[in-house]
Simulated scan of single mutants.
Amino acid sequence: MAKSIDKLIINSPHEEPKQHWFYERENRDFYIKEGRRPAGYVMATPNSKVFDDPGIFVEIDTVNQIRPRVKAWREAGYPGVTGITKRLLDHWQDPEERKDRRFFFCQLEAIETIIWLSEAPAADKVGIDIKGDGGEIERWCSKMATGSGKTIIMAMIIAWNFLNKVTNPTDARFSKYALVVAPGLTVKSRLQVLYPTNENNYYEEFNIVPASLMDKLRLGKIAIHNWHTLAWDTQDKIDTKIEKGY
């Protein structure tokens, strides 16, 4: 047991975590626990008034159900995926292609999970219920830490969609159009690397797309906008719609 952590990093960024720091809230102690930390978040203890409330850890059940299924699917060789998807997955993990720039485990797992949701056999996803908001657009979120390479994941998602759609135009699971919404002008400028025609594009910079497929990738269309250009309704208009039951 320890009151503080003397060595924060205890796993390789290129492998699935094998252990994690566990916080025992009753004794306010840390210790290393074998296995991966469950996905979850800490919320305040109800009615607590102490300044150092350790909180309550709440697991995210859906994520914890999906993780082992994606792992089993990975170990089985990604059954159910298209030829293009398999080629990309192999390319992203090929030791010969990744000598200088290996992707982090969290990056590979993020794109694998999105692909799994789209392409894995239906039997693999029985019991997985991702709640929507009732709209026509299906919303998936890949939550990653600052500095873990989210822009690379965006490039992977775009490449996976574009290359599959150009190769199989009738496959409705994919699109050759992508809208990227930035939270600010600074971020928008940094996201220009998502354009395949950009001199410093990530597809070539990080070897995300094999050179022989770059021409196909460029057949897709990308639009990158700052959020304020989407012409959101004012709060007054939103309130009026709510009052009218729209």
Rank of each mutant, 00 (worst) to 15 (best):
I9N: 07
I10E: 08
N11M: 11
W21N: 02
Y23R: 08
R25T: 06
E26R: 15
F30M: 10
G35D: 03
V42W: 14
M43E: 05
N47H: 12
S48R: 06
K49E: 11
F51Y: 07
D52R: 07
P54G: 04
G55P: 04
G55V: 06
I56E: 12
F57P: 00
T62I: 06
I66E: 00
R67P: 05
A72E: 14
E75I: 07
A76H: 07
G77T: 01
G80R: 01
V81Y: 00
V81T: 00
T85K: 05
L89R: 01
Q93R: 14
P95F: 10
E96I: 11
K99P: 04
F103T: 03
C106V: 08
C106N: 13
L108S: 09
T113P: 01
P121V: 01
A123F: 13
G127R: 02
I128P: 00
D129T: 05
K131F: 09
D133F: 14
G134S: 10
G135K: 08
E138V: 10
E138W: 12
C141Y: 14
K143N: 13
G147S: 09
G147Y: 11
G147N: 04
K150A: 04
I152F: 01
A155I: 00
M156Y: 01
A159Q: 00
F162T: 05
V166Y: 02
N168A: 08
R173Q: 08
R173H: 08
S175V: 02
V181F: 08
A182E: 03
A182G: 08
T186A: 15
N198G: 08
E199C: 04
E199T: 05
N200T: 07
N200A: 14
N200M: 12
N200C: 11
E204Y: 06
N207S: 09
S212D: 15
L213I: 05
K221Q: 13
K221G: 04
I222A: 02
T240V: 12
G245I: 06
